[in-house]
């Protein structure tokens, strides 16, 4: 049996994603990180082993946060994407943004400020639209697009 694919799950509220993790764990090897900077560090250290990333957008600000949106804490996920952009693109590591925010707002920001290459490298799913049970299917579909 081939090794499980490795996923990095970055979300600040573990309890909230526990059920997602329950469903994912049976298929993938998931590493969970509860802050953006821990997640980024893990990604930078282990990017060769990581097959995909699941990322929350609205998380507490890391210390050297410099994204512009004034007082909003919404965009910590973008901060991580900005920092890891090259690494993600070069290694073709797909990212699934799993969030409580409106996906439209996130997609707009992604298109305007990031324009990832390939364009399907980062996609967005709203937690209230996709249940924990169905989530692994979304991941599988994404990985298939990247031949994983």
């Amino acid at each position: 049996m081939p090794d499980k694919l490795n996923g990095l799950f970055i979300d600040d509220v573990r309890r909230e994603v526990r059920l997602y993790l329950d469903y994912l764990d049976s298929i993938y090897q998931i590493e969970f990180k509860s802050t953006a900077d821990l997640g980024l560090k893990h990604l930078e250290d282990r990017y060769l082993e990581i097959d995909f990333v699941i990322l929350d957008i609205q998380m507490p600000k890391p210390k050297d946060f410099t994204l512009s949106d004034l007082d909003s804490e919404k965009e910590t996920g973008f901060w991580l994407l900005q920092r890891s952009r090259e690494l993600l693109e070069e290694n073709k590591i797909p990212v699934m943004i799993l969030t409580n925010c409106k996906s439209k707002f996130i997609e707009e920001t992604l298109a305007q400020d990031f324009a990832f290459n390939p364009p399907n490298l980062v996609r967005v799913r709203e937690k209230n639209r996709i249940s924990a049970k169905d989530f692994p299917k979304e991941i599988a579909a994404m990985l298939m697009e990247f031949g994983k």
Partner: peptide, 24 residues
């Protein structure tokens, strides 16, 4: 706006939990 945004965000958490748990 921040309060509404955070409360909204935090409310999704129990709501999603109810959805996923009841499904299971």
């Amino acid at each position: 706006e921040q309060t509404i945004s955070v409360v909204k965000h935090d409310l999704y958490s129990p709501l999603n939990m109810i959805r996923d748990t009841s499904e299971r």
